[in-house]
């Protein structure tokens, strides 16, 4: 599964995208973030305040309860500030 990070989340994690294979049982966005936090301190720091984080699964905005089973692309980012 491809993970994408944008804006300050990208800067804190240090990469814009990466391929990951979450273990069995990690099947929602929320679980994915919890799993990422256990990998390295930089993830833990980046996801310390998850209230400020938005998510899109396969380019559709959704929430932390959404399933990631079979997803090709999960994007995590701060609230948008375009316009």
């Amino acid at each position: 599964m491809k993970l994408l990070y944008f804006a300050w989340l990208r800067e804190r994690i240090g990469v814009g995208s990466e391929e990951v294979s979450p273990p069995q049982g990690v099947d929602t966005v929320g679980a994915l973030i919890e799993w990422l936090k256990t990998r390295e301190p930089r993830y833990e720091a980046a996801f310390a305040q998850t209230a400020a984080i938005k998510v899109a699964v396969d380019q559709e905005q959704t929430d932390f309860d959404a399933s990631i089973v079979g997803a090709r692309e999960v994007a995590l980012f701060p609230p948008v500030t375009g316009g």
Partner: peptide, 24 residues
């Protein structure tokens, strides 16, 4: 809708450094 739904992020450069714009 564009301001709250479209995935854009602004980063401003100032004399004090660069900062990501907060959502309003």
């Amino acid at each position: 809708f564009l301001k709250t739904r479209a995935p854009f992020w602004k980063k401003e450069s100032t004399a004090d450094g660069a900062r990501w714009v907060d959502a309003r």
